[in-house]
């Protein structure tokens, strides 16, 4: 297997507060990595480093290397727009644009200048099929995305990210705003998608991490405590803090 991300000595500060401390981690191609840990442990912050979303936050300072396909994306010379095309993101709250379903899916490709109607049509169909939403919405592609249920909206956001044909999908607690049935659907979808994409998912639910991920990283107070195969983390953690967390002693 190939390392798609290689993070070396990553440190991050919000103003004077250090939010990530010396994180080093390698992420393999085509697998699902779950980031777990209590609130405020830095897992979402870490995730947002991977597509430079922290650029939007004033006073955020990042040191260290984030190698994506062997290129350091944590440098001014690396174009963050190129990065975000290859590293898509799905957010905690479903956030479809106030447009039609169709327009939502083609948003990314259109921003890259794609205008051919046929190509756009096929992107919409393929992306929605991959996101297991096509059958739900194929008859109302041009009605508002905001009329969909929460779970459907989140799958639309996944379809919208897939439409860019990224290598990696970052998911920031994608099911925390959804009901159990919609959550199951998203988890099934993640299982399907991992054939084609590397998926890095932040989750509050350890059961979810255990169900869907190949690897699990446990964060605590801005530090990466343990990173290993999910089976190992849950059955046989090496660090006692990890064990305390997954057995529910805190967090």
């Amino acid at each position: 297997m190939n390392n798609i991300f290689e993070i070396i000595n990553l440190n991050l500060w919000y103003g004077s507060k250090q939010a990530l401390k010396n994180i080093s981690i390698n992420i393999d191609d085509n697998c699902v990595v779950a980031l777990i840990g209590p609130s405020g442990c830095g897992k979402s912050t870490f995730l947002r480093c991977l597509n430079r979303m922290n650029d939007l936050i004033a006073n955020c300072r990042i040191e260290g290397s984030i190698l994506f396909n062997n290129e350091n994306v944590n440098s001014d010379s690396y174009n963050e727009i190129e990065l975000r095309k290859k590293v898509g993101m799905v957010f905690q709250r479903p956030n479809p644009f106030p447009m039609s379903i169709y327009e939502n899916v083609i948003y990314g490709p259109k921003c890259q200048g794609l205008t051919n109607k046929k190509e756009l049509d096929s992107i919409v169909e393929n992306s929605l099929k991959k996101a297991a939403l096509w059958d739900d919405v194929k008859d109302r592609l041009h009605s508002s995305a905001l009329g969909l249920s929460g779970g459907q909206q989140q799958r639309l956001c996944i379809a919208r990210a897939i439409a860019m044909e990224p290598d990696v999908l970052l998911m920031d607690e994608p099911t925390s705003a959804l009901d159990p049935i919609a959550t199951t659907k998203i988890e099934e979808l993640i299982n399907e998608l991992k054939k084609d994409y590397t998926i890095i998912i932040v989750t509050h639910s350890m059961q979810q991490a255990a169900r869907i991920s190949d690897y699990t990283a446990f964060f605590l107070m801005g530090e990466l405590i343990e990173y290993d195969k999910t089976d190992v983390i849950f059955a046989n953690p090496k660090n006692s803090k990890t064990e305390d967390y997954i057995t529910g002693r805190f967090g």
């Binding site: 975000r84 993101m89 957010f91 644009f97 948003y107 990314g108 921003c111």
Partner: peptide, 24 residues
């Protein structure tokens, strides 16, 4: 969240303003 979604899809600042923010 609209701004983040747009930038996350590889749109630039101007596209984000005109296609998403002004629309919202």
């Amino acid at each position: 969240m609209y701004t983040e979604a747009s930038l996350g899809l590889g749109a630039n600042k101007i596209q984000t303003i005109y296609k998403v923010e002004l629309r919202a």
